[in-house]
Design a protein around this nucleic acid. Structure first.
Length: 269
DNA sequence: ATCGGGACCTGCTTGC
DNA sequence: TGCAAGCAGGTCCCGA
């Protein structure tokens, strides 16, 4: 479910409830996620939360002495409860504070939850990550330089977190459509100018999706339970067989790198 | 160094 | 109606 806008929406949803509050307990109901939840997460208890922030698709909850590192995987979601509620089937754990419970649910168990007591940016899961797409470090020139000599499809290239973080399957299709670049084109065979357009498209689509509260396709909702509204702005994703909104040709679907890609064969070259 | 593919999971939709 | 196949928003790890 979650790409960068969904994670950002989740982060903003839980931050007001956690920042300044003390986690009094972490109640683990089902520790089986991508990796088993370690006992060490309990070290976050008893200290006020200093900050809740996002790096790539990870949510970082900082306390004195370390940080909780949370990933939503493919199907993770978080709800904020202001009163007790019966846990549902795939609710894995709760972060309990005096005024709220942050409850994590993940049916497919591709998400993760760990504790880090060393500098967070050098954590093995974060150390090799590329720039944030909405930061100044990300640009067309950055993409162009990193693409030299690469023969892999540009769609796989922009979804590689070591190149740029936060571009998942939906927004990769969308950004390539906006930039008029065919998703299967080799990354090394795209001009500097076209990469400038692609970087702009990535920035634009992610920023707009964040403003809409993410994309709700199936069951995503923000921490307060409200759905995202970006789905109605999708130009290519899941539009196979429908007319291109720019030229009227039929949108195609093709599996690239084991993922469905949607594109207009006339507009995208 | 780069790449493609397999792996990890459950649940929903589709088609015979 | 029932059952199997196909599909889903991520990313780590392996061998070539």
């Amino acid at each position: 479910m979650p790409e960068l806008p969904e994670v950002e929406t989740t982060c903003r949803g839980i931050a007001p409830h956690l920042e300044g509050a003390t986690i009094t307990a972490i109640e683990i109901r089902n520790p089986r996620l991508r990796w088993p939840i370690p006992e060490s997460v309990q070290q976050a208890c008893g200290h006020p939360v200093m900050a809740v922030r996002r790096r790539a698709k990870y949510i970082i909850i900082e306390v004195a002495g370390g940080a909780l590192l949370l990933h939503l995987g493919m199907s993770g979601s978080v709800r904020v409860l202001l009163e007790a509620a019966t846990p549902r089937k795939h609710d894995h754990f709760d972060l309990v504070t005096p005024h709220a419970i942050v409850r994590y649910c993940d049916p497919r168990r591709f998400g993760s939850f760990t504790w880090c007591d060393t500098p967070i940016e050098s954590h093995p899961l974060l150390a090799a990550l590329g720039p944030e797409p909405l930061s100044d470090a990300f640009s067309g020139d950055h993409l162009y330089k990193r693409a030299r000599g690469r023969r892999a499809a540009v769609k796989n290239f922009i979804m590689d977190g070591r190149i740029v973080v936060g571009v998942g399957n939906i927004y990769a299709s969308e950004a390539l459509f906006m930039a008029g670049i065919h998703p299967a084109r080799p990354a090394g065979r795209i001009s500097r100018a076209r990469y400038a357009g692609l970087a702009g498209a990535i920035r634009d689509v992610l920023a707009r999706a964040i403003r809409q509260g993410g994309t709700t396709l199936r069951d995503f909702s923000g921490a307060g339970g409200t759905p995202g509204y970006f789905a109605q702005e999708l130009l290519a994703y899941e539009r196979e067989g429908q007319p291109c909104l720019q030229c009227g040709a039929t949108i195609h679907r093709r599996v690239i790198g084991q993922r469905s890609s949607y594109y207009c064969p006339a507009c995208q070259r």
